[in-house]
């Protein structure tokens, strides 16, 4: 096959996928805002995304904070800047690592499970059954997940920030020889509201992306168990790539001079 034709086909497929996803997102927002609302479904998703992701996000955050303290201490020792450890930990956690790692972990846990659940509902005709029961799948299935992702990821990231800083604090106090008051003073000395807020904005965007991609891939899955498996993989991969891309764009918006 002509390599240019293959490249062109790939590009057209990409544009078609972007179009489909945009229509899906638009339809979700329009139908979701119109109501009726399903508070029980939203609450269930909030518990699933927020509460049940706490252990994995918490563990990721504490180890990341601990490693960050160790790494920055050994690295910064080369130019006598060990005292910046607390500042490095808190800024890295709140601005970058908290939202990005929480987003990626939730994409792996929640995005995959959403794609699998909705994909199975698609191939077992449960989504068609919803339609025959006068219930819009966008309102009943997709919107509660998207709203829950949008609301719960910032909360998760707030918890991750605190746990990550605590991980750095533990290493700083018990391993690197900082005094507790000094470490805490340095933690808050250079921390600004914008650092935390930018992280929470990122988290909300990542939550939206994870839920949207999980629902989108599940909703359009085809071909039985194999199709559901493929949808699950695509949900995680596409959400992860979109999270990393969105992370750069939001950072640019917040912090570029």
């Amino acid at each position: 096959m002509n390599p240019l034709a293959a490249l062109g086909r790939l590009f057209l497929d990409f544009l078609a996928a972007v179009g489909d996803l945009s229509l899906f997102a638009g339809q979700t927002i329009i139908q979701g805002l119109r109501g009726p609302y399903y508070p029980r479904a939203i609450l269930r998703q909030m518990v699933d995304i927020g509460y049940y992701s706490l252990p994995v996000v918490g563990l990721t955050a504490i180890f990341t904070g601990m490693v960050l303290a160790l790494q920055s201490h050994t690295g910064f020792a080369r130019f006598e800047a060990q005292s910046a450890v607390a500042t490095i930990v808190v800024l890295s956690m709140t601005r970058e690592l908290g939202p990005v790692l929480a987003g990626l972990m939730v994409a792996g846990r929640v995005g995959a499970s959403m794609a699998a659940e909705i994909g199975t509902m698609r191939v077992t005709e449960q989504i068609d059954a919803l339609t025959t029961l006068s219930t819009d799948p966008y309102k009943y299935l997709v919107w509660p997940r998207v709203i829950a992702g949008l609301l719960m990821l910032p909360l998760l990231v707030l918890v991750a920030d605190i746990i990550g800083v605590f991980g750095g604090y533990l290493v700083g106090i018990y391993k690197l020889g900082f005094s507790a008051p000094d470490y805490l003073r340095r933690t808050f000395e250079y921390l600004e509201t914008e650092d935390v807020v930018s992280g929470l904005v990122k988290a909300a965007v990542f939550g939206f992306i994870v839920a949207l991609m999980g629902c989108y891939q599940g909703y359009y899955s085809r071909g039985g168990a194999q199709g559901v498996g493929a949808a699950t993989t695509k949900a995680v991969v596409s959400a992860s790539i979109m999270i990393l891309t969105a992370n750069y764009i939001i950072t640019e918006l917040f912090f570029s001079q």
């Binding site: 139908q31 659940e117 199975t120 509902m121 077992t124 005709e125 449960q126 068609d128 059954a129 339609t131 025959t132 029961l133 006068s134 219930t135 819009d136």
Partner: peptide, 24 residues
């Protein structure tokens, strides 16, 4: 439209081949 279709569907009851029960 989607909304009008939903109203029409209120007259319908459907039994699917695999029952299509909501497993959640």
């Amino acid at each position: 439209s989607r909304g009008e279709r939903q109203k029409v569907m209120q007259q319908f009851g459907m039994l699917f081949q695999g029952a299509a029960l909501f497993d959640s």
